[in-house]
Structures are given as C-alpha cells and as structure tokens.
Amino acid sequence: MDKQFIIEPCEKESAKKIIEGINTYNLGKVAALADVWTPLDFVIKDENGNEIAGILAGMGYWNGLEIKILWVDETYRNEGLGSKLLNHTETMAKAKGATISMLDTFDFQAEAFYLKNGYEVVGEIKNFPNGHKRIYLSKKLA
C-alpha cells in the first residue's frame, strides 16, 4: 500500500519542530559547546545618532562566529568603519570562545574587503546570481 504525503506551507509551529528536529540530530552527533545562539549585533552611529553601519552576527552551538550581514552606508564607505565593526565583533567572539569566523558574500559586494581582513575563500557558487558568484569565506580567530 502506497503512503500518502501532503506538502503544504510551513506554519510557525512547524518551523519550530523542524528546527528542534535538526538540532536534536546535530547535537546527537557533536556535543554543543554553547547552549544557545549568542547574538553579536552592533551598530555605529554618527554624531547625530544616525545609524551609518552595522553588523548582524552571532555564535551558535559550536562557538563559531557566523557573520550574517555587515553594512556601511555608502557615504561612509572606505573610511575603515567596516573593518572597525568586523574587528570589534571578532574580538567579542574570541572573548566568548570562538576560534573561527565564517560568512558569505557576492563578488559585487565585499570579497576584497574580507580578503583584506584575513579571510580565506573556502568555496563559491559560480553564476549565482547570473553573471556573478557567491563566495564563502572563513578565518581562524585563535
């Protein structure tokens, strides 16, 4: 007898079950070094209190720093704010036990910036988006 399966849009409660399921599996294979996601989100403001740069990052179960977004307002680019944010976040992560940092960017974004800041390319997806590439980088923090 064939089993019947239904695929439907994922609701919030189902998303929780999916996350719990993969976490249970992963932690059954490799013990956690940390209990929860530790956010490391920071902003830089100008003298008027306007947000001109920011980073959204954090550390997960195995104490790796994961950088999700690093942004600097176009008016303030090439003034060292991105490196200042990145270095601050790496320092905070190292103080919490991180030994590696990881991120992805596109060739039209910040590949050269991350290479200049000590990151190494560990992989890429060619022609995504069309005519470009998505680049995965990491850096040892120890």
Rank of each mutant, 00 (worst) to 15 (best):
A95E: 15
K140L: 03
T99K: 12
G118Q: 09
K16L: 11
A15C: 14
E11H: 06
K17M: 10
K16W: 06
P39R: 08
G64P: 02
K96S: 02
G64E: 01
G118D: 01
N50F: 09
Y119R: 04
T75C: 07
A34S: 12
S83E: 14
N87M: 10
A31E: 13
G54D: 03
A93K: 06
N63P: 01
R77E: 01
R134V: 00
E124V: 11
E13I: 15
T89W: 03
M92E: 15
V43L: 10
R134G: 00
K139M: 04
A98G: 03
N63K: 15
I19M: 07
T89R: 04
R77M: 05
E47N: 14
D46W: 11
P129T: 06
V43Y: 10
H132Y: 13
E74M: 08
N63G: 02
D104M: 13
Y114L: 08
T24I: 12
L81D: 01
F42L: 12
A110F: 10
E111F: 05
A31N: 04
A110S: 10
E20K: 15
G58F: 05
N127Y: 06
A53V: 14
N127R: 13
G49T: 11
M102V: 15
E20T: 10
L27M: 06
I125P: 00
L27G: 07
L65D: 01
E11R: 14
G123N: 03
I67N: 00
N23S: 11
K17H: 08
Y25V: 07
E20S: 12
E66A: 09
N87P: 05
H88L: 14
K140I: 03
S138F: 15
I52A: 02
L81K: 11
E11D: 09
T75A: 09
Y136F: 15
Y136C: 00
K140R: 14
I125L: 02
L86P: 07
M102K: 08
L56E: 09
I67P: 02
G58H: 05
K140T: 04
H88W: 08
I100R: 12
E20W: 07
W37T: 02
A15S: 07
M102Q: 04
